[in-house]
Simulated scan of single mutants.
Amino acid sequence: MYRILHNHKNMMANNILRVLSLLAFTCSFAFTFEPSPLQDFCVADFSSPAFVNGFACKDPNLADATDFFYSGLHLPGNTSNFLGSDIIPVNVAHIPGLNTLGISMVRIDYAPWGLSPPHTHPRASEILTVLEGMLYVGFVTSNPENRLITKVLQKGDVFVFPMGLVHFQRNFGYGNAVAFAAFSSQNPGVVTVANTVFGSNPRIGSEILTRAFAVDNTVVESLQMQF
């Protein structure tokens, strides 16, 4: 009888541990994304000295329409640069009312054959809509497959870039192109591959980059000078 009760207690303890482990896993997965708001809104208080994951809230009674408003996405960006593209962001820095809402967007303008170079957004997935022109877009899956998935988009087409994966867009036509993209974060961040690797401050040691890219040191130094 004692052995049966002892085994029963062990089984209950093991079941409780399994449930707790599952809950811990579920909670850790849930908090890898931005938390849901616990109130109607949390307008960012940029003057607050509080250091939080995002921005502290200002008094909701002081909020007004300007906290939730931005004007200017109808204006084209300046594409007269090396890449032939320009990005106009609209995130929490531009609309304080986006704080804790987990969304933001950008306008992207492309000159003919303009490029949005390979980059990642460490905190967001992206959904892109072509408003004008034609774009060649793609992303690369993670190691070890590193599979390139691409598509040519026409006006009105929509394409999704999964969170954290390297992706790009290029104007595939002779006229200007325009796209709007939305993100699943109030501040998605951007890591441009070339700038990050060859333009870091301080620089990554050339002995690391020559081995990583299997190129001569002069090539690495030349690329670092570019960025």
Rank of each mutant, 00 (worst) to 15 (best):
Q169A: 11
K58L: 10
N53A: 09
L209S: 15
V152N: 10
S85G: 08
D59A: 00
R170C: 01
T141C: 06
E145D: 15
Y174G: 10
P49C: 02
L38K: 05
P162D: 03
S184N: 01
L223W: 11
F161M: 00
E126Q: 13
A182V: 15
N10S: 12
F46S: 06
Q39K: 12
V219K: 15
I87G: 00
G72Q: 10
A50Y: 01
L128Q: 04
E132N: 11
A44W: 01
S200L: 09
A111Y: 06
S36V: 09
L153F: 03
P144M: 08
P89M: 10
S28C: 15
G54C: 01
F46A: 05
T129E: 07
Q154V: 01
G156T: 04
F180C: 04
V160A: 10
G138P: 10
T26R: 14
L75K: 08
A56Y: 00
A214N: 15
M163L: 13
M1N: 12
T196K: 12
L73E: 01
I87K: 04
P96T: 11
V140G: 08
L73T: 04
F227Y: 05
P49T: 04
M225Y: 13
L115S: 08
N201E: 04
P117S: 08
S142I: 15
L128N: 05
N78R: 07
K9H: 07
G97E: 07
Y70G: 09
I108V: 14
F161S: 00
I4V: 11
L153A: 07
G114Y: 06
D59Y: 00
I95N: 07
V137K: 01
M11W: 14
V160E: 08
P112V: 09
Y136C: 04
A194I: 08
E207R: 12
P112Q: 10
P118R: 01
F198R: 12
V43S: 05
A13D: 13
E221P: 08
F82N: 00
